[in-house]
Design a protein around this nucleic acid. Structure first.
Lengths: 144, 144
DNA sequence: AATTGACAGTTACACTCGTGACCAATTGTG
DNA sequence: CACAATTGGTCACGAGTGTAACTGTCAATT
């Protein structure tokens, strides 16, 4: 009878690794600023692009619009971002980080970079192949 | 000001890819048998090991015990597995697939293998590096 | 100018998940 | 042998999520 070794199965391994990495990364920003992953993604996207609509944040960080909506509200309540009605389209709101939000962003980014750096260093010569294969996988599953 | 490109950030990319792969894999077993991921993992583990306790299923497939408990009940209600009280320890239950459950398992496994094969084929010469680097990552984050 | 359809964002609902409490059974310690 | 600590499994609860419905706005067609 043909069997399957779950622990060798690609989708399973990818999921488990991604979960472990995310969990570990949480220890980077968790202790200092209590953030969920959706909140972190919104913060990171706004830190990167300065001003953006919720719609565009969702597209760029691949999150459902309700997820974005909730994360935005949570960050707004913490005074980490503010909304401004768009001039040319009053349906959408332009979101930007507040001074406080930017402060948090500037605090987290170096830690995030260091976290990533540490992983790639531990991988050593396999770091490059990893980045290449991730790109290939993103292309195969058109995650872009 | 130092910024971070979220779309290039390792934890983010891993999560997105893992989600996309899982989503795609769902189309393998989804249409024929309506299964959640936890249910699939329980099914796969029991198919692989014949008889096992819920505890051991959780350890082998890295799932929280309540998640296992719920998946087991769902599969039991579908008559895909059955429970049997353990002789030597009456706290635990030995779980095994029913004939029906094994039939489903034998139906899904070849499709799962083909799914994985297709990905690795598309990766071509980068398939081997991927498998190597996954092992390294599992080791680094002691996912084992 | 009015109506229709599309669209940005929010909310209600059902469902899933992990935490912590719990029960019954087992193991360890005095 | 008794009693405390541990363990396998379930359940109640709160938090997070996607679907679908909804509000307000814009664009197209008439």
């Amino acid at each position: 009878m043909s069997k399957l070794q779950l622990e060798q199965f690609l989708p399973y391994r990818l999921n488990r690794i991604a979960a472990a990495v995310s969990q570990d990364f949480r220890s980077v920003y968790g202790p200092h600023h209590d953030l969920t992953i959706p909140e972190w993604r919104v913060l990171a996207t706004l830190g990167q692009f300065e001003a953006m609509s919720a719609k565009d944040i969702g597209r760029h960080s691949t999150m459902h619009k309700t997820k974005v909506s909730r994360a935005v509200r949570a960050l707004e309540e913490r005074r980490w971002l503010k909304r401004r009605e768009s001039e040319e389209d009053r349906r959408e709101e332009i979101l930007t980080l507040t001074a406080l939000g930017e402060k948090v962003y500037r605090d987290i980014v170096p830690k995030a970079v260091a976290f990533e750096r540490r992983i790639l260093d531990e991988l050593g010569s396999e770091a490059m192949p990893l980045l290449g294969v991730l790109e290939r996988l993103e292309h195969i599953f058109n995650v872009h």
